[in-house]
């Protein structure tokens, strides 16, 4: 069990800046997340104050991670799979089964791509296409389904669906989930198919999934589970109700309205800009550290 005064979920610019500001307030800080999942990774920035030309987003994240660690933040490069309130604080579980106990939490999860963008997806939503295995698994008892996505949420969903469906394909070209989660899905009976989805086929309901290698899988349901556990789901685990567009409302101190929980960066809504993420990160890190210092007795 790891303990922290302030736990930050998300390793993008908002989370890293929050880590720097919280750590400088002399509280213990743990950050959980993968920098490569940040929207900044792989992009170029030319509208950030003081950085001329086109700055490499991945390099900003790499340097920022080093700065956060330099100020004493502990970094865990993995995804969070669940969060809960516990013993007056919070407990977070990661994909490697690491439990982290925290007094305050900063949600800096960014926005994740939810839609796959393939033919048939929009037309067959609610007719065999689903974005929530936990919600809709029960409708597929004894049926054949595919889970699409290569990150932790798809692995968890593939494992979950083996409890309902008679056959579960886990369709992913590249798999970034932890070895532990891959093994759990395989042990439960999910069959891994290393390909990308090309089209979802069906008239009034889903009947098949076409893959980029030409294979066509006959099935009844397609669950699209891209990325890590969504910020909206994590927020609800912690009693923070997201807006209908999945953003999390905060006040000027980045406080969510739920004691001990702050949010910053793209997850708080538009504009989705580096400058805003960094600014809110500084505010959220400071606010969370001050809240811990003012409200938690040793």
């Amino acid at each position: 069990m790891i303990s922290a005064d302030v736990l930050i979920i998300g390793a993008g610019p908002a989370g890293l800046q929050a880590a720097i500001h919280a750590a400088r307030k002399k509280v213990s800080v743990v950050l959980v997340g993968k920098t490569e999942n940040s929207a900044l990774a792989g992009t170029h920035i030319e509208n950030y104050l003081g950085i001329p030309g086109k700055a490499d987003g991945s390099e900003i994240l790499r340097v920022g991670s080093g700065q956060a660690e330099g100020f004493g933040c502990r970094m865990l490069r993995e995804n969070v799979i669940s969060a809960a309130r516990k013993d007056g604080g919070f407990e977070i579980m990661t994909e490697n089964d690491t439990a982290i106990k925290a007094r305050a939490v900063i949600l800096a999860t960014g926005i994740s791509r939810v839609k796959l963008g393939v033919p048939g997806e929009k037309e067959l939503f609610g007719k065999g296409v689903s974005y929530c295995a936990a919600c809709d698994g029960n409708f597929y008892k004894g049926k054949t389904v595919a889970i699409i996505g290569g990150e932790t949420e798809s692995a968890a969903s593939a494992e979950l669906m083996t409890a309902y469906a008679s056959k579960v394909y886990w369709v992913a070209k590249d798999i970034a989930a932890s070895e532990r989660m891959i093994r759990k899905a395989a042990d439960a009976g999910a069959e891994t198919v290393r390909a990308s989805a090309k089209a979802i086929i069906g008239e009034d309901k889903v009947t098949a999934l076409e893959l980029d290698d030409g294979t066509v899988l006959s099935l009844d349901g397609v669950f699209i589970e891209l990325g890590a556990r969504s910020s909206a789901d994590l927020a609800m685990d912690l009693d923070v109700m997201p807006e209908m567009d999945d953003s999390i409302k905060v006040d000027s101190s980045c406080f969510t309205g739920t004691d001990g929980i702050y949010a910053c960066g793209d997850v708080t809504g538009k504009p989705w800009q580096l400058a805003k993420a960094v600014g809110q990160g500084a505010v959220a890190g400071t606010s969370a550290a001050e809240w811990v210092r003012n409200n938690v007795s040793e």
Binding site: C132, A134, C135, A232, D233, M236
Partner: peptide
């Protein structure tokens, strides 16, 4: 709806 469905709670 169902109680374990996050979007349903919203």
């Amino acid at each position: 709806w169902a109680p374990w469905c996050g979007p349903c709670r919203r």
